[in-house]
Design a protein around this nucleic acid. Structure first.
Lengths: 136, 136
DNA sequence: GTTCCTGCAAAAGCTTTGCAGAAGA
DNA sequence: TCTTCTGCAAAGCTTTTGCAGGAAC
């Protein structure tokens, strides 16, 4: 159920977020590069096509998209933020050797927290670490 | 099954990590303040007792303790690292309103990743966000 | 005496902010 | 015209590194 570019444009319009050239390109990059890119990667990846694009705009855009619920920041122990197009909740696995982040499916409802009955849960993150098959 | 100060001293000796005054105080702070403190909080908390303590030493000590497996860095979307005495795996819940991080128990083995059969999993993190009872 | 530890200062790296100019409605 | 968006430059924060002095064995 991966969202298409058109799906997302519709959602942005519905939320009254203007669809500037830069924003659309950043979204396009996120859709085509499902490797949980950093700001730096987005910047480098779009630099040939939009030489004037600034990191400030990338930060601004990612913040807006995150507030709109279209993009999610991945939580790892890295200090550099990584972003994901928001889809169904899935787990992330980071290989300690090569650094690649893999997605894995997980039945989120099978996780039964012991004592959060009086809490309102808005977001669930599953993050595993270890070694990937290639590095083994 | 919370480790005591003595437990940890034994483990450090076993791993040939020297028990300097600063390191022991940092450990003591972590044991007595199970609020997942930041480096800043440790620094402020120990400053009265050890006015000369530097953040460099705190960073060094936390790195050594983490490598020894005695301390774990919590993964949140914050850019500031938070630390925990390593115990059994448990989940962390951050309240979006007051910022407090709560522990919750979770049966880690009930989480069945879909397609990681060829991966070696070394560490599992569960991180929820939402609102705590007090802020509701 | 040799090794390891501490801590000041500086550097590095990611992110945010201020602001002026450009683009869009 | 008025609002919003972009992007350069500077600032802000956390973390790391270099290095000299000190402690421990």
């Amino acid at each position: 159920m991966k969202p298409t570019f058109e799906d997302i444009k519709q959602q942005l319009k519905a939320k009254n977020i203007s669809l500037s050239y830069q924003r659309l390109k950043i979204l396009e990059y996120l859709i085509e590069n499902r490797c949980h890119p950093t700001v730096e990667m987005i910047f480098a990846g779009l630099h040939d096509e939009i030489p004037t694009l600034s990191k400030t705009t990338i930060y601004n855009t990612l913040r807006i998209l995150e507030e709109a619920g279209l993009v999610k920041e991945i939580t790892t122990e890295d200090k550099e933020a990584r972003y994901d197009i928001a889809t169904e909740t899935h787990g992330h696995f980071k290989c300690e050797s090569c650094g690649t982040i893999f997605d894995f499916s997980v039945d989120i409802d099978s996780i039964i927290p012991g004592d959060l009955s009086r809490f309102v849960i808005k977001d669930k993150n599953i993050y595993f670490k270890g070694l990937c098959p290639r590095c083994l």
